[in-house]
């Protein structure tokens, strides 16, 4: 219940927030933050099965190019193109997932890194389709949604993208939450704990891992597609190795154990560099300090810090009442 109320409250805040922002730059920061939240949370879905994927960057690249090219070459509506891009990425993840998921632990992570690197190389190489290393430009924004008399969303202003990103984020989080609370989430957590046992009692562990992988990558594809239409340009190495590493760090810093962890991590670590712009010079050290502090003192991440804080406050209240 607290969870529901908090989420509702935050949603309402996010709806009104743009009106209090001093400029388009902050709107942009929030759009990127919401993208990162989707990415981090979808990465956590994959990690529920115990596998750490580093293919998100590659999957986003595929999604971004698929959607942009569908619109620019085939003249498809942006809305369909983005959805198709997401589904295409899920298909790619499904096909590569079956061989990849046979590997465990670090081996799986390494293969996914190499997969991402191959995506970058292929997009650079396949110039006739992708425009090569230079990337593609003038990717059109999504088509306008006009309901006469009510509203007119034409995606000419950043605010419109803000609300689109907000919608995507809420929809994604709802779906991810539902999956986690469903029997699928339960089975994935079981697989993570003891996958040999899960397999021997009749659970198709590879199948479920691939399911988690495809679903997680679907969101990466959607976010990639969104990004290409939002920024209207895309390069093969926009979402390179470090982009994926960042997502992984958001997830770890936020805490992998609870659903809110990655959300918190992505939010704090995307916003933090922006609000401390006064201290920009020292940003690397602040970032380093946060990371080290989390690694050493918060094995459950920032989310763990929150639950500890709450426990601490409750304790104080109890002492006062006593």
């Amino acid at each position: 219940m607290t969870y529901l109320l908090t989420s509702l409250f935050l949603t309402v805040c996010l709806i009104f927030l743009p009106h209090f922002m001093s400029g388009p730059y902050y709107v942009h920061v929030f759009i990127i933050t919401m993208m990162n939240i989707i990415l981090t949370s979808s990465l956590r879905l994959i990690s529920l099965s115990g596998q750490i994927s580093l293919a998100h960057g590659g999957m986003m690249t595929i999604g971004a190019y698929t959607s942009a090219l569908l619109v620019m070459r085939l003249g498809l509506s942006t809305w369909y193109a983005m959805l198709i891009a997401g589904l295409f990425v899920a298909l790619v993840a499904c096909l590569t997932g079956f061989p990849f998921m046979r590997l465990k632990g670090i081996y799986f992570s390494i293969v996914t890194v190499f997969f991402s690197e191959m995506v970058v190389l292929i997009t650079q190489q396949w110039e006739s389709l992708t425009g090569g290393s230079g990337g593609i430009y003038n990717i059109p924004a999504p088509g306008a949604i006009v309901v006469t008399g009510l509203f007119n969303i034409d995606f000419l202003s950043k605010i419109h993208f803000y609300y689109f990103a907000l919608f995507l984020m809420i929809a994604s989080l709802l779906i991810l939450y539902a999956i986690e609370k469903s029997r699928i989430g339960f089975i994935l957590k079981g697989i993570k704990q003891t996958d040999s046992l899960a397999e021997s009692i009749g659970i198709n562990t590879i199948g479920f891992k691939v399911l988690a992988y495809s679903t997680g990558c679907f969101f990466a594809g959607i976010v990639g597609a969104f990004y290409s239409h939002y920024i209207s340009a895309m390069c093969p190495d926009t979402f390179g190795f470090f982009y994926t590493i960042n997502i992984l760090v958001y997830m770890t810093v936020g805490g992998i154990e609870v659903f809110a962890g990655p959300i918190l991590g992505a939010f704090v670590l995307t916003i933090l560099p922006e609000i401390t712009r006064v201290l920009k010079e020292f940003m690397p050290f602040i970032f380093a300090a946060v990371l080290i502090a989390v690694i050493f003192f918060l094995p459950e991440g920032l989310a763990g810090l929150f639950s500890r804080l709450i426990a601490f406050i409750k304790k104080i209240i109890r002492i006062k009442n006593a």
Partner: peptide, 22 residues
């Protein structure tokens, strides 16, 4: 193993017989 389980053969292990966090 999961298809064999579906046929009705279930085995236990010497270790890792449980989901420890559940």
């Amino acid at each position: 193993p999961h298809s064999v389980a579906k046929k009705g053969i279930i085995r236990t292990f010497q270790a890792n017989n449980i989901f420890p966090d559940f």
